[in-house]
Design a protein around this nucleic acid. Sequence first.
DNA 1: AAAAAAAAGTTTGTACTACAAACCATACTG
DNA 2: CAGTATGGTTTGTAGTACAAACTTTTTTTT
Lengths: 107, 107
Amino acid sequence: MSSETALNGSIRDLSKINKLIHEPARLMIFALLSTLESADFLFLMRQTALTQGNLSSHIKKLENAGYITVKKEFTGKRPHTILALTNSGRTEFLGYQKQIQEFLNSL
Amino acid sequence: MSSETALNGSIRDLSKINKLIHEPARLMIFALLSTLESADFLFLMRQTALTQGNLSSHIKKLENAGYITVKKEFTGKRPHTILALTNSGRTEFLGYQKQIQEFLNSL
DNA sequence: AAAAAAAAGTTTGTACTACAAACCATACTG
DNA sequence: CAGTATGGTTTGTAGTACAAACTTTTTTTT
């Protein structure tokens, strides 16, 4: 191995970190969904303290990336949006955790 | 303690994470400066693989925040810019590390 | 039963930010 | 002395996070 690769690997790798996950608001969403397996819009809103508009935007981004699924149901008469991580989302989040943990360990 | 505070503390806290540090390019700069005590512009540029313009912008932000000092010297005839963390910068970076580690531990 | 307010989101407008291209100043080089 | 290299800074732009405003349906008030 070159003299730079091993020690600085985890530092330079940061430039390739998944920014869709790294963003704090979305990191909260990932954290909640990864421990809960599924959650609804209002629950996420309360747990994260994000506004509706902001949460909605982040959800759309994650859905477009294929990281979460969005199911729109009705509970009685009221709409109910259920979010869950996809396999891809779960895998990417685990990879993110690994990368950032390695970074912290390198300090 | 309330039922939410302890478990979700580290999750909701993410919304208050220091974004000046959290940004990947600057995280690289912090990582390098925290282990090296001082470094010059070109060294940082090579280690991080940031472009000159981009690195320059990030440095200015960190300097304005009081997280780093910027000393412009001459080595022989050539300009030489030396960067170092301030106490404040070091403290904030440690706080950041702690917060993100707690987050990872909570998953 | 009409009007008003609430619930559950989505869309739109804006202020900010990361980035590279273009620029600047000085120093070498053929 | 023209051209290129060195060591940066400034400027322009595309993208992003966020909240305000809007939409649609339902519930409550009068």
